[in-house]
């Protein structure tokens, strides 16, 4: 079946749409109350967490579950840099990204040694638990079970506890990283990532250095999720080891799947929907988990390729391709 491709006009519309979404979101704080603003900020964090996850598990096709480890590394890096070394929080975002990338480097070492599928899954899960153990036991640095409070800080005279200010910073970081990741996926690098997933042996025969592609994908994924960790630290104001356990991993895995594996658009949709859902379900105390599970299962049964596939059926504008025609 030949897929209907977006026409030149539709490609232009897509670009317009891409920038229209954050532009409209600039007005969001006018329509929120403190509670909904906090939820919206959490959505932006989840978008980045899901984006990084879908790259390794969807595009690269590696059963790697170190994503929450990258997230925790990012959050703790930001908290430690800000609280112990007095680094301005804004500056800790790219630094947390760099530490997340380092985490990605470590996780890829297993994949590069030829460890794949279930074996890679269990090793990366162990990596995540090891990191949680480290947060718990490196007390002088991390505060152990008490966690780490983020220091008070102001930006342009506004306290960094202000959710509206945080929203604008989170939005800028998210748009920047989503755009950069899209650029990456729609380049020869993005194609090489998927080629490794499809047939690693054939990929090497095309003069593509597969090991370097795997390494770079894990590191970029770690960078994005590490940055998300820094945002999260400021979002909740206090980092605890429990935030970076299995529960977070499973929740972000669900976001990846509900949105659509290996899709940037899907990462955004899945993160937004599954962050909002529990808030609506609060109306049914005691039944929240049940409804959450049912809805996730329902979406996946109806749309195994996720919400992104639904949009693709609506309009070719949403068809994601991995090349970039001249403008």
């Amino acid at each position: 079946m030949s897929q209907i491709m977006p026409s030149a006009r539709q490609r232009k519309m897509r670009t317009l749409l891409f920038w229209a979404v954050p532009a409209v979101l600039l007005l969001l704080p006018l329509a929120t109350n403190p509670y909904t603003q906090f939820i919206a900020n959490g959505m932006l964090v989840s978008v980045l967490v899901t984006l990084g996850f879908t790259l390794t598990i969807g595009n690269l096709g590696q059963l790697a579950f170190a994503n929450t480890a990258f997230f925790g590394i990012g959050a703790y890096s930001s908290a430690i840099l800000a609280a112990k070394l007095g680094v301005p929080w804004l500056l800790t975002i790219p630094l947390a990204g760099a530490f997340g990338a380092l985490g990605g480097f470590l996780a890829s070492a297993a994949a590069l040694r030829g460890i794949r599928t279930y074996y890679l899954a269990i090793i990366t899960l162990a990596f995540g638990e090891l990191m949680r153990w480290a947060y718990l036991h490196a007390k002088p640095l991390t505060g152990g079970t008490d966690g780490m409070p983020m220091p008070r800080e102001t930006l342009l005279g506004i306290s960094l506890t202000d959710d509206t200010l945080k929203f604008y910073i989170f939005l800028a970081v998210t748009v920047l990283l989503v755009k950069a990741t899209l650029n990456l996926m729609r380049s020869h690098f993005g194609r090489a990532v998927m080629a490794v997933r499809e047939n690693e042996i054939a990929t090497a025969s095309l003069a593509i250095p597969t090991a370097r592609v795997i390494l770079a994908t894990f590191m970029w994924s770690g960078f994005v999720v590490g940055c998300a960790g820094a945002l999260f630290a400021r979002h909740v104001g206090h980092v605890f080891p429990e935030s970076f356990g299995m529960l977070h991993l499973i929740a972000s895995f669900a976001m990846v799947l509900v949105g659509g594996l290996g899709s940037v658009l899907g990462a955004v949709l899945g993160a937004v929907l599954l962050t909002a859902l529990p808030e609506y379900l609060r109306a049914f105390p005691g039944m929240e988990e049940l409804f959450f599970g049912l809805i996730v299962a329902g979406v996946l049964v109806a749309m195994p390729m996720g919400l992104a596939s639904l949009l693709r059926r609506v309009s070719p504008i949403f068809v994601e391709r991995f090349y970039r025609e001249a403008p």
Partner: peptide, 20 residues
Amino acid sequence: GLFPALTVLENVLTGLHAQT
């Protein structure tokens, strides 16, 4: 050795990777 999930064009483009 084709990549089934990629389109024909994307497949051919992977052959030009080193020239990019």
